[in-house]
């Protein structure tokens, strides 16, 4: 690490205050849409579409109940005949003259997102690590051209090849399958993953592996014991980028999945309630959808902070 030419002193209290105010202001601006979504999740359907918008309202879990259930409208007499509600969510639904008829498909779609998102992230990072190591350490014929080719797969928006991929997937029977979506997202993420990770491997001096090999380890053992631990930060940063892409991907998910393998993004915006979109349920779904990425990022944030500088400040 090079030493900065200026001295980095403690900021004065006034500077700290100013910096704090700026950070808080920026955070507020960027977080307003997020907060609005989280709040909407706790509104009742009428409150969610009332005009002017309500900032203060009576919170309810109706959105979450609607998100996870299917319901049908019944006459008050029929509901009366059912006897007292057994659970709090039955009671909540009956207030609107409805009864729960079953589970919604949200949980399944959410699981699809988890399987496809984490599966493709794992694959992209796993393959990316091996490829990056090979590109960094071995004599690969046409190395530079191959690296450029890998990068070039990202030079157009992936959706540009949506139609060929759609046709190909239909032929191969990969449409609407977990495997198909995992492969697709892996393919898209792999170029980012190889490029990022190669940078991290390049940063690790070969002497480390050579020392291990002289000490009696095989090349593969040296890779596992010496290179991988030092790539932790890079792998974490890369995994987060890959996960965020795969998790949020909308266009291909909409095009290629409809049932078994449909992920949450195309599903959430079309949660229909009575008389149109069920906004509180949509907002509740969106809120829940945010959780894994946030948790994943927070868990890896220490690695991420080191990794995101892309090796600039390693030691």
């Amino acid at each position: 690490m090079s030493v900065a030419a200026y001295s980095v002193g403690e900021a004065s209290p006034r500077q700290k205050l100013l910096a704090g105010v700026l950070v808080v202001a920026y955070a507020l601006v960027t977080m307003i849409p997020l907060v609005w979504i989280v709040l909407t999740g706790f509104k009742s359907p009428p409150a969610s579409i009332s005009y002017p918008p309500q900032v203060l309202f009576e919170p309810t879990l109706e959105g979450y109940v609607n998100l996870f259930t299917t319901r049908s409208r019944q006459t008050p007499e029929y509901i009366e005949s059912l006897g007292p509600a057994e659970t709090w969510y039955d009671a909540l639904v009956r207030e609107r003259n409805m009864v729960i008829t079953g589970k919604s498909r949200f949980a399944g779609r959410y699981m699809n997102s988890v399987i496809i998102g984490f599966g493709s992230t794992f694959l992209a990072v796993f393959l990316g690590t091996l490829a990056a190591y090979a590109f960094s350490r071995f004599k690969v014929p046409l190395k530079d051209d191959l690296m450029f080719f890998i990068l070039s797969t990202r030079m157009m928006p992936p959706v540009a090849v949506a139609i060929p991929i759609y046709l190909m997937y239909r032929e191969l029977g990969l449409s609407d399958t977990h495997l198909g979506m995992i492969l697709l997202y892996t393919a898209v993420n792999l170029s980012l993953s190889v490029w990022l990770l190669k940078g991290f491997v390049d940063e690790i001096p070969r002497e480390y592996e050579e020392a291990a090999v002289v000490d009696g380890y095989t090349r593969f053992q040296a890779f596992v014991k010496v290179v991988l631990p030092q790539m932790r930060a890079g792998i974490a940063a890369t995994a987060i980028f890959c996960l965020i892409f795969a998790w949020n991907e909308y266009a291909f998910a909409l095009l290629l999945t409809s049932g078994t393998a449909q992920t949450a993004p195309p599903f959430i915006p079309i949660i229909i309630g009575e008389g149109g979109l069920d906004w509180p349920a949509v907002a509740a779904g969106t809120t829940l959808f945010l959780v894994p990425v946030v948790v994943f990022t927070v868990l890896l944030r220490k690695q991420l902070l080191r990794g995101i500088t892309f090796g600039a400040v390693r030691r």
């Binding site: 001096p205 002497e207 480390y208 050579e210 020392a211 090999v213 002289v214 000490d215 009696g216 932790r232």
Partner: peptide, 20 residues
């Protein structure tokens, strides 16, 4: 023969310690 089979020890100019 490969390095592992020679039973030698190498002290590198730098970077021979594992930071982790």
């Amino acid at each position: 023969l490969g390095p592992a089979e020679r039973d030698v020890a190498f002290v590198f100019q730098q970077y021979s310690l594992y930071p982790h």
